[in-house]
Amino acid sequence: MSLAAAIAARDPDLLPSRRDEDWRWTGLRELIRVVPPASPKVASVAGHAALAALGWPTLVFANGHTLEEASIAIPATGKGAFVRRFVSASDGAAHHVEADVSVGEGGRLVLIDSFEGEGAGYVASAALSIRLAANARVERIVLLDDAEDAISVARTDVDLAPGASFHQTVLAAGAKRQRFETHVSHPGAGVNVRLDGAYVLTGKRHSDQTTVVAHAGENGITTQLIKGVATDQARGVFQGRIVVQRGADGTDARMAHHALLLSDRAEIDAKPELEIYADDVSCAHGNTVGALDEAAIFYARSRGIPEAAAKAMLTTAYLGEVIERIVDEPARELALAWLTGRLERLA
């Protein structure tokens, strides 16, 4: 039961629905009556100025096909900075893409995955995997810039060897339905996983960030900070699950989701879940949903800052906390520019 299977078989009965517990806020069967035809192969896509400006090696996938054969494999102790662009280029068509990354022992990678909608009304599915050998380090930034009327679901499976570290920041602008899933199998053993995210949603956009981290070994660390803003009739969804398996003692897991609602017709749904089968653990999660702090707005205004500017300043600061955690500087700048651009559309 998945979007990929439904696309392959052109059978909407294979789509997950609201009645499936994990899809209660992102049902697809209710939305897709007929699975659209397969997306055509395209020879080229438009450029992306901000990504091009990085000057990093770039892989482009258009409608699920690579434009030229290439893959990312960072050898042991190697270093790399890559961009992958997953472009949905055609209107009203469906495609599924699969891609892998592997990083050798002690290797380092900064990876930017950009999901872009050039077309309209498309249905896109992606299954990605990232494998990290011992002591490898990956920092991944994901930009979700789907078309407003698109349906887009991507899943990444992350597999970590001892001593590795995986940091991810997902920046989502939403779509008609947008879901980004990250599944991490966490070996413990000093591995540090950070799964952050931010979303800025306007109009009728929907965005769902779903994460599952399964701690299988001792002394693993996971931290998560997801922050979002929804206005108009937009809908933000966060589902986070941290599983600590039997024997995964010494696990330290912290999950936080905070969201601002800027309109009475917008909606935030959250399910921060802990599933713990070991006793020597320290796990916590926090979740808040609300409006901007009235007292802070008044404080800023009492210093002469007009209301709209005060709100914009506070909203930027609110989401900026996520961006600040990005270590790689060019990646952080890119993320900040993305956020600023998206926030401008809020006003």
């Binding site: 017709r265 909606e267 802990l274 926090g286 609300g290």
Partner: peptide
């Protein structure tokens, strides 16, 4: 947690 207006305030904390 399901919040459907801009004038609600929900806070949730959990520890294990």
């Amino acid at each position: 947690v399901e919040a459907r207006n801009a004038h609600c305030t929900f806070e949730h904390e959990a520890t294990t």
